[in-house]
Design a protein around this nucleic acid. Sequence first.
DNA 1: ACGAGATGCTACATGAATGTAGCAACTTCT
DNA 2: AGAAGTTGCTACATTCATGTAGCATCTCGT
Lengths: 185, 185
Amino acid sequence: MAQRQQAKRADSQRTARTILQAAERVLADNPAATMEQVAEAAGVSRTTVHRRFATRDVLLDELATWAARQFAQAVEDSRTETTPPLVALYQVTVNVLRVKTSWSFAMHHAAVNAHPEAARVNAEVRAGCDRLFRRAREAGVLRAGVDLDWARRVYYGLIHEAAQENGDVDVLATRVLDTLLRGVG
Amino acid sequence: MAQRQQAKRADSQRTARTILQAAERVLADNPAATMEQVAEAAGVSRTTVHRRFATRDVLLDELATWAARQFAQAVEDSRTETTPPLVALYQVTVNVLRVKTSWSFAMHHAAVNAHPEAARVNAEVRAGCDRLFRRAREAGVLRAGVDLDWARRVYYGLIHEAAQENGDVDVLATRVLDTLLRGVG
DNA sequence: ACGAGATGCTACATGAATGTAGCAACTTCT
DNA sequence: AGAAGTTGCTACATTCATGTAGCATCTCGT
C-alpha cells in the first residue's frame, strides 16, 4: 500500500514538475499568460493545473522557489569557494548558462522575493556571488577600483544576453568572461 | 474659430501625451496594469483614456511609436555619423541614458515590432547603431575580431543596467563605455 | 477482477477588465 | 451671455480568467 502511494505520488510530482516547466516557458514569453495556456503547454487540462496549484499566486510562488533551487544548485555544483577565482567564474558561468532557460522568467520581476523560501535561496546565491567577486578582486582578476555591485550586475546582464543565443555553453561562457574582463575594445 | 479649434486640439494633445507618459511609468512597473491604473496615474478618468485611445491595443501601439520616436530623436541628436566613433559613442550613450526612463517598458516586449511605424523607426536606429559600431571597429576602438552583434547587445545591456541607477549621466556614460571597451578585469 | 488515485471534460459561479453611451459641469473663446 | 470642446461620473453590456464541483474514464498495483 505504501509502495502504491509512493508510485502515485511520484507520478504526481512528475506532473507538477512538467507544469512548472511549461509555466516557465509560457510566462517567459508572455507574463500575462493564462492558466489555460500553461495547461496547454504542459499537455494537461486546466483543471489538473488547479488541482496541483490551488491559485495562480501559488503557482507563481512555487515556480519562483523551484527556479531558485535550480539556480542555487547550479551555483553550488561549481564549487566556487574552493577553486581559484578565475576557474570558479568559468565553472559557474557554464553551469548557470546550462539552466538559464529554466529561470529567464522566474528570476525576473518581484517573483524573486514573493515567496520567503525563494527569497532566502536567492539571497544565499547572491551572497556567494559577492564572495566570489571579492575573492576575484583580491586575486587581481578584477581591477582594484571596480565597483563590485556594478561588476555583478554586468555579469548577470552578460549571462542573460548569452543565454539568448543557442550554442555550445563552453563557447558562450568563454565569450561572457572575455567580455566581462577585457571588454570589446 | 480656427484658432479656438487649434487651442482645443493642443489641450487634447497634451492630455494624450500625459496619458502616454503615465502608461509608460505604470506599465514599466507592471506590464499587466489596467486602463484604470493608467488613468489614475495620468490624473484623468478611465473614460477619458478611452476617448483618446479606443482600445488597449491602440494605446500600446501609440506608446511604442512614441517611445521609438523619443529614442530615435536622442540618437539623432548625437550626430553619430559625423563625429569620431569614440566621441559619438559617448554622446549617444549620454543622450540615450537621459531618455531611458521613457522607454524601459515600451522598447521591451513584442511592442517594439507591434506597430509598423514603431518597427520602422526602431529598425532605423538599429541600423545607425550598426553603422557606428562598424566604424568603431574600423577605427580600432573595437577589437578587430569582435562580433558586432554581440557588441551591440552588450552595449544595450550595459545601458539598461546603468539606467537603473540614479546619478549623473556623464558619470554613468563613462562607466558604461569603460566597461564596454575595457571590461572590469 | 478490484480498488485507489489521477486525469479529462463539462458545467457553473464569480469577479475583473474592457468598451460604450448619456448627461451634467467646466473651461475658453467670441 | 452663448457656443464649442473636453472632462468626470454613472450605468451598462460583454468578454475573459479564475476557481470549484461532479462524473466518467484510465492506469497501475494487488
